[in-house]
Amino acid sequence: MVETISSPPVAGTSLMARSTSRLGALNRMPVLITIAILWLVLMLAIAVSADLISPYRFTQMDLRNRLSLPVFMGGSWAHVLGTDELGRDVLSRLITSIRMSLLIAFGATIIGAVIGVTLGFVAAHFRGLVEQAVLALVDFSAAIPFLVLALAVLAFFGNSLVLFVCLLGFHAWERYARIARGLAISGKMHGYAAAVHQLGASPWRLYGRHILPNIASTLIVSMTLAFPEIILLESGLSFLGLGIQPPDTSLGNMVGFGREYLSSAPWIMLAPAFVITVTALCVSLLGDWLRDRLDPTLS
C-alpha cells in the first residue's frame, strides 16, 4: 500500500519568524512567478467582471461580419479578436469562456479536495478494514486513466453542467486522500493531537480544528497542482464535444468549434488555445514554486 508519511510543519515556530520569512519570500520572488501571478489575477478579474467588460453578448450574432479578421491581422476595431462563423465576437466569447472554465476548475478542485481529505481522515481515524477499503479505491482510481472513466460516466448518464462539475471533482481525489491519510496518521502521533484527544475533543474537532490546519499548506500545494490538470481535462472533454454543451461556452469548447475553421479562420481557435496554455502554465509554475517554499514533506 502507498505510504506518504512525513512530519507536519513544526508547530512551535513563532508567528513573528514565520511572517518575516514570508515577506522575505516575496522579495526574493522570481520574475517568472510575478508574471504568473499577474496573469492569474488578470484572468480572475476577467472572470469576475465578465458581464461588464465584454463588448457584446457572447451569443450575439452579426451576420454581416462573419469570419471577420482580428485587428492584428488587418481587421476592424469593432471586433478586436475577429468573429466566428456566425459573426459572434471572439473576444466576448473568450471572456465568457474564461469565466466558465475557471468556475468549473475551482468547483471541481474544491469538490476533489473535500472528498479526498474526508476519505483520508476517515481512513486514518478508523484504520483496519475501512482504511483498506479506502486504499483499494485509491488504487482503483490510480489504475485507470481518468479521461476514460469520465467518458464512461458521461455515456451512461448523459450530460449536464452539474454532473460535469461533480465528475471533474473526482479527478485527483485519490491524491488528497493519500496525503490526508498519511499526514493525519503522523499528526496523531504528535503531542498536540494526543493532548486534544485527552481533553475530550470530538473527532470532528480534532481533525477539523487541529490536524487540518497543520496539513493545510501541503493540501493547498496539491490543489494548485491539480487545478491546471482540471482546466486541461475540462477543455479536452469540451473539445471532444462531450463537456460543456452549446449555447454555453468554455475554452475547450471554443477550440473544438474553431477546429472546423482551422484553415480559413485560425484566430477562432488560437485565442482560447493561448489562454488555456498560458493559464495552465502559470498555475503549475506557481504550484511548483509554492511546493518548494511551503511543502514540509520536501525539506
Partner: peptide
C-alpha cells in the same frame, strides 16, 4: 509539454 494540451 505539460501545459500545452495534446489537442492544441
Amino acid at each position: 509539454g505539460f501545459a500545452v494540451p495534446s489537442f492544441i
